[in-house]
Design a protein around this nucleic acid. Sequence first.
DNA 1: TTTAGGG
DNA 2: CCCTAAA
Length: 652
Amino acid sequence: MRRLEHGFCGYRVPVVPRASRSARGRGPIRKKCEDNQIRAFEILASVAGTVLQETENSVSTNAACVKNPLHVLNANSKRGIECEGRSLKEDARGQGNCDEKSFACVPGLQEHPESYTLNEFSHVQDNQILEVGSASNTCDESEMICFTKKLATVSIKSNCGSSSSRVVGHSLSFGEFSEEKVEAEPHKSRSEISGILPVADSSEDLMELDRESLALVGPESDAKVSLLRDFIDVGTFPRCYDNVKVVSRDDDENSVGCTQPSTISKSYRPPPDIGERRIKKLSASRHGRESQKFKDGKMKQMCCNKRYSHIDDRSQKIYPFKKRKFFSQSPLCTSDEVFHHEGVSDFPDKRNSDNHSAATGASSSVTGQVPPASKGCNVKLSIKSFKVPELFIEIPATATVGLLKRTVMESVTAVLGDGLHVGILLQGKKVRDDSKTLLQTGISQDHKRHNLGFILEPRHEQSNPPSSSEDSSLFSGGTGTPQELSRHSGTSLSNLGSCGESKLNTIPSLADISTGNTLAETQALVAVPAIGMEALAVIPFHRKSHPEFTQRRIRRPFSVSEVEALVQAVEKLGTGRWRDVKLRAFDSAKHRTYVDLKDKWKTLVHTARISPQQRRGEPVPQELLDRVLAAHAYWLQHQTRQQVNNNNDVKD
DNA sequence: TTTAGGG
DNA sequence: CCCTAAA
C-alpha cells in the first residue's frame, strides 16, 4: 500500500540558485568553470540529459509546470504506486524504454536496465520505488530500512515525480514542519524521506504531498527528519552555493530537496588531494567550498546513521564516506528482501549493468570501433553513455528550465570532477596499468570492442604511473595514446592513496549488503556489460577544460637525457626561444611543452646554483649544470633577441 | 600562440 | 606544473 515513493538516489545535487553563483565571483575563473562544466557536460551529456529528463518526469517539469507537476505528484502519490508508475510510464513511453508493466506493477521490478542511460533513468526509479513500496508495506522500521535499501539500489529510480516532489521540502525550515508531521504519521515519512531526494520540486503543493506522505510514514520519519535537518543544517546543498537559500526556510517547500545528504555530499566532495590549487582558486571564486566540505562531512555523519544511508549502497560504494555510513547502518539494512527483488528484477541484464554502475559508481557503454589497422592505427571509441552515480537535484519549483539544466550540469560536473575518474574495463576487468598501450591491452582489437567499458568511479590510487616512459618518449617520440590514456584514466589517482582502498573494500561490502545474497549480481555489475553496440557519436572527451575537473598533468621528471637535450638546445638557441627549443629537441615529446622547457630551464638554473645536498630528484650531472649556468650567463648577456638584433646590426 | 614570470 | 598577463 504504501508507496515508497521515491527512491532516490545517490547523489544529490544541490540546486543552487544562480544568484549565488554570480555573487561569488566572476572572473576568469568563472569562465573556466563554465567551460569545464560544459565539457563535462559534453561528456556526460547523455547522462545529464537523462537526469534532466528524470527530473522533469519526476517532478513533472519543474519550471513549466511547477504547480501542475505538484498536482500530478499528489495524485500519484496518493493513489499509490500505480499512479506514479503510470505517469512514469508515460514518460517512459515517450522515451521508449520503460515498460508499463514494470512500472505499474511490479513491485519488484525494477529498474530499467540502464536507468542511467539517459532515457530510462527516471522510469527505472519509479519502478523500483514502487516495488519498494509494495514490498515494504508491512514493514515498520525494518521496512523502512529495507525500503531504503531498495531505494539505494534503485537509487535512480526514485525520482519519480511524486516522490521527488515530496522529498523536497526538507530544507532547514523544513525540519520543523517535517518533524511534526512525521510524528503524526510515521510511515510515509520514510518513504518520502527516502524519496526525497530527487528532484526537487519544490512547489508548495509538493510539500504538502510530502507532508502527507510523511505522515503516513510515521515512525521513521523522525529519524529521517532529523537527518534531513542535519543535512540541511550542514548545508547540504550549499555545497556549492551560498545562496542556497535553500536553507531558507520559508520556502522550505520550495526548497525541496533534501535528501540523502550523505550520499550526495560525498559524491560531491572533492577529494582533498586533487589539485589543491585549483580548488583554492575555485574556492575563491566559488565560495564556499570549504563550507561545503564541511557540510558534507556533517552530512555524512548524520546520514550515516540513519537508515537513509542505506539508500545508496551503490553510491556509498563509490565513496568511502558512504561506506562508513553504510557500515553503521548495515545491520539494519541487512534485511533486505527488498533487495532481492531488485535482484530478481525483470531486467537482469539491465539490472546488472545498473548494479554494476552502482557498485563502481558509474559505467558507460562503449562501442569501440577499431580500425582494422595494425599497430599504428588509432582506436576510435564511441561512448554511448556513462552511467553516473545517482544525482540528486534540488531545485526550487520556481526555477527555470535553464536553471535546472545548469544545475544538472553542475552537479554532473562536480561529480565527475571531484570524485570520479575514468576507469577502463576490458571484458569485465579493470585495466589498471595505465602504461600499457591499447594494443597491449587488447583494446585495439575489434572483436573485443564489446567488452570495452568505461566507468566512472571514485578516485583511488590506481595503477601505475606512467612516468617511466619519458626518456624514451623524448627521443623516440612516444606514441601518445597510451600515455594519454593513462593520464586520463589515472592521472591524479596515484596520489590518492587511502581512498582507493577503502573504496575497494567498500564496494564489495556494499554490494553484499545491498544485494544481500547475490554475489552474482555484484559480479555482474562488475563486469561491464557492453552496452549498446550502436555507435554513438564519437565522443570527444574534453576533459581538459574544467579546472575542477581537470586533472593536473602527471608529473614527469626530466630525465638526464632530456636535460642534456634541453641544455644543448638552449646553448644553441638561447633562452627566449622556447618554442624553437621545443621543436629542436623535444619535438617528439608531446608531453613537453615549450612552457615546460622554459620551466625546466628555470629549475635547472636554480638547481645549478644550490648545493648538491639541496638538490632533489634524479641527480643531474654536474657537467650539465655547469653548462646550464654557462649558457644562462651567456644568453643573459646577449639577451637573445637583442643579440639577434645586435648581430644583425653588427652585420649591417 | 608564445613569452616571461609568479605561484 | 599551473596560470596568466602581455605581446
